[in-house]
Nucleic acid binder design. Structure first.
Length: 823
RNA sequence: GCGGGCGUGGCGGAAUUGGCAGACGCGCUAGACUUAGGAUCUAGUGCCCAGUGCGUGGGGGUUCAAGUCCCUCCGCCCGCACCA
């Protein structure tokens, strides 16, 4: 008798896997490819349970597909640039590179101890020059194709850290690092023109059949397409016009005022010299200090002031006042709104507050609205009025006619607007890929030629956490010569957003060690697209949308062979403890290392796959882990006891099987069937594991029977080990060896099930009377409906129930149920 | 406010196409083995007033049959939120 020494076993097999590298994805193999991708981690120092869950799911799928005969690509790497490394430098004086490299080494160690079957030869680390050289190359392709540009704009600014922040680093209007309220600053920054792809990114969501509905809807909302018109309003006494975007051009005759965003450049111009100049300036000044969260919140009290200027409504020539108000945003549409209080809730609320006129231009069919008594805007359809030649028309019909009319007059046009903004990729940070641009005294902005890449990150920088990008402290970096003319030049001081690095890493995996190109087109063509992507839902917008954009852009440049990167997406749920997300502040963290040392990686993996289906949140349970450990011990003892006898088991002779033998085989083969389907069709790993537990329970029963046959046991143990292999890769290798088998269990074919073995001689039929369960009968498997009914009616118990009752209806569900409706 | 998801024993969860509600695991109860057990094995375990009873958040409906379909209400979670 031996005991389940998980520590020895896991070490032993991890050693063997390391030397053999049997998890290699083979380029251009004849076998069908399967690209199994998990979201690569940020090297924060240690893996957390969320990682373990993510990667366990990925590994089970990868191992399962391998056993099914696929040529599997299952890579891993690190999203290694980012702010925490710089914080460590500021706080502890450790260079970001050193900090990151140490963390990556530690996390690699952890990944290996969990037994994940990665193709380590393809490991990618985005902070290494071998990688970021190509990130810079990507930037140049974007630049060459007009998709990278510089513009001055209002960006998030943390006054305490003195740096620009990405939207994702602004949490509830506060800087995630220091908690300071984030303001706005007008800065010149680099952008990628993702808005050029808005329509395709939206339309192609349709292609993403294997994505969760939720993620698709989130992307749709993020892109935020709306159709309508732009209409030009002339300003009285000025040359400039105010362009407004509206989704309701049909209400243009109802405009009673115009509103500009406080940041709109025209605001100060048109109020200049009027008696309202001071109040406008005060208002604009005040608005600068309202953070974006409050500013865009629907509960914000609407405020505004008159600018002193008037606009002319091009539809009816009417003179309407121009106001500026906090409810209009500069960066949506044109930053100006035509206000129709009668038919827009926000305009209505504002007009009521400031006593602005309300004019009805659409009446509900069969009634007339009275502006005086209205308590809310009328936003539904109806019949046009007060609208000149459009009166009497249905507003839907008038919609296009009005745009056509304005277009003819040269004061309007059809317009599609998106909420999606261009992607700000500049970061005033050190630990990122430098933007490969040089500023020459003579030539101006010059891209670094491809053959001069990478633009290396310098190491002689000073980290203060204050001021500009730390890169400016490196003179060797900043001072350079112009690649065009050789004159004195300085380098771009900003680095790229780390989301740029992660927007193409899945392509790099297909050819990770290429030092001539980011990746070979043919290799990418062989492997792409990703068959299954697994990761947290927190990336639903940013990473997944950026990656889709990158893939489409690269496709257009003939660099990527596909225009959508991820065929199927699985968003795994969070790992919770005591009903809450694990966090330091709550003190409810369970560390993977603790679990591995106490129970082993196999138990950790098994529990995490068993406790909940993958998309759902998972409640951590120490007792649940204990239960999985017990199960593995149960399997161990079973094989330990029986494997020696199985070695000389003979072939199963179908003709000599007893009822018990047949039942054992029926359970075995139905479990193999269920596990196969649960993994393959539904990713229901939890039910796959519970079926395997049932098989083990059945084997414990069967082996105690006097007439138990060792060949039946041998067949069952062999298949049991095989179906467990993707979940618990170490113990199954050991058990496979104990069974006297040669070769790795992970190189075996996934077991088949025998349809013959699933067949039963007798089937249990549920008997209902008036829909209520009243008994069960055994019927021969081949019995027809009449035979089943007669067996049912002759059953003693049923007979009693049916006494003095009249059967009105008989329902027979073959192989399952009989329902007798009686009176 | 809008959009999405969820609600099943003491707990995590199962029920795939409308067909035995509660698989499997945890916990609990009893027994066996034992110097001992927090190891292992065996049996039991939705609820109750214990029967032709009740039961999948509440109420209503469709159906021979509803956790599953329809209507309605309630609660929780997530995303978006003055987007003109």
């Amino acid at each position: 008798m031996s005991f389940y020494d998980f520590e020895r076993i896991e070490r032993k097999w991890q050693e063997k896997w390391k030397t053999k590298n049997n998890f290699h994805g083979e380029d251009f193999s004849e076998k069908q490819k399967y690209y199994m991708l998990v979201m690569f981690p940020y090297p924060s120092g240690k893996l957390h349970m969320g990682h373990v869950r993510n990667y366990s799911i990925g590994d089970v799928i990868a191992r399962f597909k391998r056993m099914q005969g696929y040529n599997v690509l299952h890579p891993i790497g690190f999203d290694a640039f980012g702010l925490p490394a710089e914080n460590a430098a500021i706080k502890h004086g450790i260079p970001p590179k050193e900090w990151t490299i140490n963390n990556m080494a530690e996390m690699e160690e952890q990944l290996k101890r969990l037994g994940f079957s990665y193709d380590w030869d393809r490991e990618v680390k985005t902070c290494m020059p071998e990688y970021y050289k190509w990130t810079q190359w990507m930037f140049l392709q974007m630049y060459k194709n007009g998709l990278a540009y510089k513009k001055k704009s209002f960006v998030n600014w943390c006054p305490s850290c003195e740096t620009v922040l990405a939207n994702e680093q602004v949490v509830n209007g506060e800087c995630e690092r220091c908690g300071t309220k984030v303001g706005k600053k007008n800065l010149e920054q680099w952008y990628f023109k993702i808005t050029d792809y808005a329509e395709r990114l939206l339309n192609d969501i349709e292609k993403l059949k294997g994505w969760p509905e939720k993620v698709k809807i989130m992307q749709e909302n993020w892109i935020g397409k709306s159709t309508g018109a732009v209409i030009d309003f002339a300003i009285e006494g000025r040359e400039e016009k105010i362009k407004v975007f509206t989704t309701r051009p049909d209400t243009v005759f109802g405009v009673t005022y115009i509103v500009l965003a406080p940041e709109h450049p025209l605001v100060t111009q048109i109020s200049k010299g009027t008696e309202y100049e001071q109040q406008v300036n005060d208002f604009v000044y005040k608005m600068q200090f309202v953070n974006e969260v409050d500013r865009t919140s629907a509960d914000l009290e609407k405020e505004g002031v008159f600018t002193g200027a008037y606009a002319i409504n091009p539809a009816n020539g009417e003179r309407v006042p121009i106001l500026t108000a906090n409810y209009v945003l500069l960066d949506y549409g044109t930053g100006a709104v035509m206000a129709v209080p009668a038919h827009d809730e926000r305009d209505f609320e504002f007009a009521k507050k400031y006593n602005l006129p309300i004019r009805v231009v659409i009446n509900p069919e069969g009634s007339e609205l009275d502006p005086e008594s209205m308590i809310s805007a009328y936003t539904d359809d109806g019949i046009m009025c007060n609208s000149g030649q459009f009166n009497g028309m249905n507003n839907r019909k008038a919609y296009n006619k009005i745009i056509d009319y304005l277009k003819e007059k040269g004061v309007g046009d059809y317009k599609v607007n998106y909420r999606l903004r261009d992607w700000l990729i500049s970061r005033q940070r050190y630990w990122g890929a430098p933007i490969p641009i040089v500023y020459c005294e003579k030539c101006g902005e010059v891209p670094v030629p491809e053959e001069q890449l990478p633009v290396m990150l310098p190491e002689d920088v000073v980290f203060t956490g204050k001021g500009e990008s730390p890169l400016t402290t490196s003179e060797t970096f900043m001072n350079t010569t112009c690649p065009k003319c050789g004159a004195k030049a300085t380098r771009e001081k900003d680095t790229m957003d780390t989301f740029v690095c992660s927007s193409w890493y899945f392509l790099r995996y297909t050819d990770a060690n290429n030092d001539e190109k980011p990746f070979d087109f043919e290799k990418a063509k062989y492997w792409m697209d990703v068959d299954q992507y697994v990761g947290g839902v927190e990336h639903a917008i940013l990473h997944l949308l950026y990656s889709r954009f990158f893939t489409k852009a690269l496709y257009d440049f003939n660099i990527s062979p596909v225009d959508e990167p991820f065929r199927n997406l699985l968003t795994q749920g969070m790992v919770l403890k005591d009903g809450a997300k694990m966090s330091k502040s709550k003190g409810n963290i369970v560390s993977p290392e603790e679990i591995i040392s106490q129970y082993g990686a196999d138990t950790a993996r098994l529990f995490i796959m068993f406790a909940a289906p993958p998309e759902r949140d998972l409640e951590w349970s120490d007792q649940g882990v204990e239960g999985c450990f017990r199960f593995l011990n149960r399997v161990w003892r079973l094989v330990d006891e029986l494997a020696p006898k199985c070695r000389d088991a003979k072939q199963i002779d179908i003709n000599t099987l007893t009822k018990d033998d047949k039942e054992m085989r029926r359970i075995l083969h139905s479990v193999v069937k269920k596990v196969t389907e649960d993994i393959n069709d539904r990713f229901n790993f939890n039910t796959a594991i519970s079926a395997t537990m049932e098989l083990v329970n059945a084997l414990y029963q069967y082996k105690e029977k006097d007439n138990a046959k060792i060949e039946i046991i041998a067949e069952a143990l062999e298949k049991l080990i095989l179906i467990l292999a993707p979940f618990v890769p170490h113990i199954t290798e050991e058990l496979w060896e104990m069974m006297g088998k040669t070769g790795s269990v992970h190189e075996q074919m996934w077991p088949n099930y025998d349809i013959e073995a699933l067949k039963q001689d007798e089937i249990e039929i549920v008997v209902q009377v008036n829909g209520k369960l009243r008994g069960k009968v055994l019927v021969p498997a081949e019995a027809n409906q009449d035979e089943v009914l007669s067996i049912v009616k002759n059953d003693e118990k049923i007979k009693q129930i049916l006494e003095e009752k009249q059967i009105i209806k008989e329902i027979v569900v073959p192989g399952k149920l009989v329902n007798l409706v009686v009176k």
